[in-house]
Design a protein around this nucleic acid. Structure first.
Lengths: 151, 151
DNA sequence: TATTGATTGAGAAACTTTCGCATTACGGAT
DNA sequence: ATCCGTAATGCGAAAGTTTCTCAATCAATA
């Protein structure tokens, strides 16, 4: 879990016979410049890039979000219903987990290095190469506990 | 995170003005009888029930998987690509986390009560009512580290 | 600078999940 | 035990997200 520069990403792509492209660099830069704690969906990223005058096709965005997640550059989050969201995968001081209300989707980010370490240790013990480690807590927030109706 | 009986589920539904149905009981029983560590998708559950001669429509299955997850009876997992999977939500001695290879989807289940406790503590501290707590580790398994090609 | 093959873009297609609505049936009240 | 109001079901259609196809483009090496 390292913070990637475009050239580091390029080097790692070349190791496998793949290529760096302007689109990949744009996506990497966008995630590194976006506000901390902001998670983008594929669709949102596509819109954002369009607004910024550097549009990338949705197909390419999907392809690269998956690629960069599998390289460990991005982390793939399944927070709200129905769509995956992505954020830059940052090392320990910035690494965080998510506490989500299943009713209103209100999300709290929190840090816990001992949980991160436990995950890293487990991956290592099994011979797996760690990419991402996230504690996902599903719960009901105080406001939704008070409201009676929806599920 | 309690192991539910049909009557306990019924009582909790009634608290909110909802009803117990044969379909809901069938789904609950199915998840309690399925082999430990088996995660079913909506489609798979539908097929399984069809084979067992107690078919339930896919719509109803989707509705109840969501309902039961939000009640804390089931846990919703996003392990492999593209489909959600569900398993019964069991308390501490049986509670487990998942380590997944992002390339071949090979999954290892493991227990770690201190991680579970850290999650429960975090939810409590924020006034959230805990439903499920899962450490999700994305990694590359030993076999896929050796194979060069796919992502 | 030429070549090879990975990558992109656009639209079609595949899949998962949700919705709408008529029908059924749970469970509290009579 | 029966009736009633309404939650829940089943079916098919619809909505969304993600993947696929393929011709055109372009990165990287010689």
């Amino acid at each position: 879990m390292v913070a990637y520069t475009p050239s580091a990403m390029k080097a790692e792509l070349h190791e496998r016979g793949w290529r760096m492209t302007p689109q990949r660099e744009t996506i990497l830069n966008t995630f590194q410049n976006v506000a901390k704690g902001e998670h983008l969906s594929a669709e949102e990223l596509c819109e954002l890039l369009k607004e910024e005058g550097a549009p990338i096709s949705l197909s390419t965005i999907y392809r690269n979000l998956k690629l960069m997640s599998r390289m460990g550059i991005l982390r793939e989050l399944e927070l709200a219903e129905g769509q995956k969201r992505y954020e830059i995968n940052q090392p320990s001081p910035h690494h965080h987990h998510h506490l989500i209300c299943v009713r209103c989707n209100k999300t709290i980010e929190f840090k816990n290095d001992s949980v991160l370490k436990a995950g890293a240790k487990m991956a290592d013990k099994s011979g797996y190469h760690l990419l991402d480690c996230q504690l996902l807590i599903h719960a009901v927030c105080p406001a939704c506990q008070r409201s009676i109706m929806p599920v």
